[in-house]
């Protein structure tokens, strides 16, 4: 997957988890939770959808690395290598 494909895959997940009608416009450098008003249950769902759709396991110790869209894409890019 290219960086853009990863980014779109993450945005797809966020759209479904947050119950939005279209992909959210987010600032990649800012925390996702505040921008989209996500709670801890929503955040865990993003982690579980990553596992379900893309077989990416995120250990709890790494949850902090998924704070922003950019850091999430960085993280996935790194673990896929």
């Amino acid at each position: 997957m290219t960086r853009d494909e990863i980014k779109n895959a993450v945005l797809d997940i966020i759209q479904d988890v947050a119950g939005l009608d279209e992909a959210p416009g987010v600032d990649g450098a800012l925390p996702l939770r505040e921008q989209l008003d996500l709670d801890s249950m929503d955040f865990l769902d993003i982690v579980m959808e990553l596992r379900k759709r893309h077989k990416i396991e995120v250990p709890e110790a790494d949850y902090g690395k998924l704070a922003t869209l950019d850091s999430t894409v960085d993280y996935i890019e790194a673990v896929r290598k």
């Binding site: 479904d16 988890v17 947050a18 119950g19 008003d37 709670d39 249950m41 929503d42 769902d45």
Partner: peptide
């Protein structure tokens, strides 16, 4: 359809309000 217990439930079940 987004706030409170109802909003949380709908998101968890992927049901549209």
């Amino acid at each position: 359809g987004r706030s409170g217990a109802l909003g949380k439930l709908l998101r968890q079940l992927r049901v549209k309000f």
